[in-house]
Structures are given as C-alpha cells and as structure tokens.
Amino acid sequence: MTTLWILAAEGATDTAPPNPVIPVMNELFWAAIFFFALWAMMKFVLLPPIVGAMEKRAATIQSGKDAADAATAALGEARRDHAAALAAARAEAGTIIGAARAAADERRAVLQAEADAEIAEMRRSAQAEIEQARAEALTGMRSDVASLAVGAASVVLGADIDAAAQQNVIDQALSAN
C-alpha cells in the first residue's frame, strides 16, 4: 500500500510547463526598447520628410489648379470683351455705312438736280433756238412764200400782183398751219 502512495507522490511532481500567456522579461525589455525607438524615429526623423513632401505636392497641385481656374475665368472674360468689342465695331460700321449711304444719296440728289437744271437749261435754250429758227424760217418762208405765191399767182394770173397788198392773205394762210 505504501508503495502505491510513494508512486502516486512521485507522479504528482512533474516539472510545471511554462505558462504561454505570461510575458517573459527579456522579450518585454527588447520589445519596449525597439518599439519606443521606432516611435521616436517616426516622430522626429522618418515621418516629417514624407508628410512634408505629400503636403508640398498637394499645395503645388492646388496652386496649379487655382492658376488654371483663374486662367479659365480670364479667358471667359476676354472672350466676352472680344464679343462686345466686335458687336460695337459692327454697330459702328453699320452707322458709318448708313451715314455714307445718306451722304451718297444726298450727293446724288444734288448732282441729279444740277443735271436736271442743266438739261432744262439746254432744253430751254434749244427750244428758244428752235423757236428763233422757226420764227426766222417762218419769216423768211413768209417772204419767200409770199414772193413765190405772188410770182405763181402772177404767172397764173398773167399779171403782176403787189406783194404788200396780198400780205394779209398770205399771213392768214401761213398762220393757219
């Protein structure tokens, strides 16, 4: 019986296996040292250049975008100004053309009037000439016709006729035409 107890007692004292959950001093020490070293490096040495470069790039892109927006706005404004100037120029050109047309019409009217006046003048003088020529022709013709008629009549009558006495008859006949 005692042998059994001795054997049981022997079996109960086996070496306790280490607890896998308990942290070990050396690993704690090295983990703490290296983690705090990494934290310090990140804060003072490693992160500032990277973060600074990212922010600088964002600022460059932003300023480029702002400049592009400003340039687009300026372009829009320039386009609007150009269109306005074009419209103004067109309007002015229209005004000028209208004025020129009116002046041309006026001049034409003046020239026309002058030409008409000249033509009327020429017509009048020509008319006067014609009248004069007609009158002269009439007078000459009268005397010639009178002499011819008298001569013809004298031939027909066989006697001399006094031209002056027959002048009224001849005038009456000529003025009947």
Partner: peptide
C-alpha cells in the same frame, strides 16, 4: 528570435 523579429520591425 522574438527579440530579433522586434529588431527587424524597427
């Protein structure tokens, strides 16, 4: 080895 891995993590 664990401490070595922590060292490489730095």
């Amino acid at each position: 080895k664990i401490a070595l891995i922590h060292f490489l993590s730095l």
